[in-house]
Design a protein around this nucleic acid. Structure first.
Length: 98
DNA sequence: CGCAGTCTAGCAC
DNA sequence: GTGCTAGACTGCG
């Protein structure tokens, strides 16, 4: 199992309507490479299967997305997550801590 | 606001 | 096969 495979697998476990952060994922994998987590999601070719739009910065900001942050924001809103000015509302409430 | 830390994938040699 | 660079980040000064 490759590093990115683990990242993707964890990301896929995030329930609908919840989000998590790069930092949490890295920590779950016993590493401090949050940067590498971002890379893994960026390189992943299965944006449909992997809900990488549910992964955000540690402070609740959207961060980046292959298809554009706008698209990411829309997807999150569609799942019931409120977004305001590129930032997640009730971030701490919907944060998924695995 | 700017710099450094940390890890992986991708491309070059 | 080895080495260097960039990347969807974070934390500290």
């Amino acid at each position: 199992m490759q590093f990115k495979e683990k990242v993707l697998k964890l990301t896929r476990k995030i329930p609908k309507g919840r989000v998590t952060t790069y930092k949490l994922i890295a920590g779950k994998l016993k590493t401090r490479a949050y940067r590498a987590v971002g890379t893994a999601l960026h390189k992943n070719k299965r944006l449909i299967i992997i809900p990488c739009h549910r992964v955000v910065n540690s402070n609740g900001f959207i961060g980046g997305y292959s298809k554009g942050t706008k698209k990411k924001t829309e997807l999150l809103k569609k799942e019931g997550i409120k977004i305001k000015n590129k930032k997640i509302i009730n971030f701490e409430k919907i944060l998924f801590r695995f």
